[in-house]
Simulated scan of single mutants.
Amino acid sequence: DDRKEQLMASRIKPTQSILDFIARASTKPKLLVSGSAIGWYGTQGDKPLTENSDYESDFAHTLCDEWEQLALKATHHDVPVAIVRTGVVIHPEGGMVAKLLLPFKFGVGGQLGNGQQIMSWISREDWVSAVIFIIEQQLKLTNDSDVNHIESLAQDNAPLSDSTIKTASGTVNDTHTVVYNLTAPNPVTNHTFTKALGSWLHRPTFFTLPEFLLKLMFGEMSTLLIDGQKVLPQALLDAGYSFKHSTLQQALENQK
């Protein structure tokens, strides 16, 4: 419970501070990019999930949804909001890969549970490039300053469609809001990820961390490791973004 409170506060308090700044600023920002995560969709196994998909309620969803709901209040000040739901970011300098490097280098790396859970990932390079792409696209629309033009684009461009924004309280009907899944178009199973990482490091991957042990070690948080999500970047693809690393092998090999 304490950890959940810390996680919630670390998202809500900074976002509220930004909203307070927006409210008192005489010159409003042209765009608020608000972080979120694919955890918004909850645990849904291998069901393909896009920005138009519904959610399954769990703590990850609640955390992300309250975070997003707060960020959306920037639209009350006529500031457009772009919500980015991030998957597992792939780069050896941080995140999940950095934590796995040592055990894998010692040859004790392996899959988690049965290894069939889906992992939705994105390379760090694509994450940065995609955010720049989103900002540039939104600023172009803002500079057009024609709401009718924005709405006409929305019909051809999924990120701006009203149905894109789904929250626990319903669909937000707001042309000032966009949501993007920041994931690569080819999610993989944990087994495939394990083999790919072992191959990249030239190390064996014989070990398996059983599901019961993961639950014993991490408690409720183990769902993030055991239960997969197949989240697809439909909005980015529809908007014309071209991935630098569309496969996991490309993302890993690029680091050599």
Rank of each mutant, 00 (worst) to 15 (best):
V179K: 05
Y180H: 13
F212Y: 13
L213R: 09
A196V: 10
P204T: 07
A184Y: 01
R124A: 14
T192K: 07
T50N: 13
A23H: 14
K30M: 11
D162N: 10
P204W: 02
K195F: 04
D78N: 14
A9N: 07
I150T: 12
L209A: 13
V108H: 07
P204C: 06
P159A: 14
K4E: 09
R124P: 00
L182W: 11
N52I: 11
G170I: 14
A168I: 10
L32T: 02
M96A: 15
T192I: 12
D20L: 09
Q155R: 13
P210N: 12
L63S: 04
T175V: 10
G198I: 04
D78V: 04
S222A: 07
L209S: 11
I134Q: 00
I22G: 09
P48R: 15
L72C: 11
R24N: 06
N186K: 15
D126K: 08
A196Q: 15
Y180V: 04
V81E: 04
H202S: 13
V178P: 03
T205R: 02
A98I: 01
A184F: 05
K105F: 07
K4A: 08
N190L: 00
V81T: 07
D126V: 06
L63I: 05
P159I: 12
F243M: 10
H91W: 13
Y55W: 11
A71L: 03
D1K: 05
L252K: 12
A158N: 08
F133V: 11
P185F: 08
K166W: 01
K30V: 06
L232M: 15
D238P: 10
T208V: 13
V33H: 02
A37F: 10
L102M: 14
P103T: 04
A158I: 14
Y55G: 01
T247L: 09
Q117V: 04
K28F: 03
S123W: 06
S10R: 01
D227V: 01
L31V: 08
E220L: 02
L214A: 06
Y241H: 13
G219L: 05
V97P: 01
N181V: 11
N52C: 14
V179F: 08
W67R: 03
P210C: 09
L209C: 11
L112N: 00
Q6V: 08
I226E: 08
S242R: 14
F104I: 02
S145H: 10
E5R: 06
Q44G: 04
T27S: 08
Y180F: 15
I122A: 14
S129K: 11
G39R: 00
Q111F: 03
G87A: 12
S199E: 15
I18S: 04
D146V: 04
S161V: 08
L141R: 07
T62G: 04
W67P: 03
E125F: 02
V108E: 08
V147K: 13
T175M: 03
Q137G: 15
L31W: 01
G95W: 02
V128G: 00
S10C: 03
A196N: 13
L72F: 15
E253F: 10
G198E: 03
C64K: 02
N173G: 06
R124F: 14
V33A: 03
D2C: 08
A25R: 06
A71G: 02
P185T: 10
L225P: 05
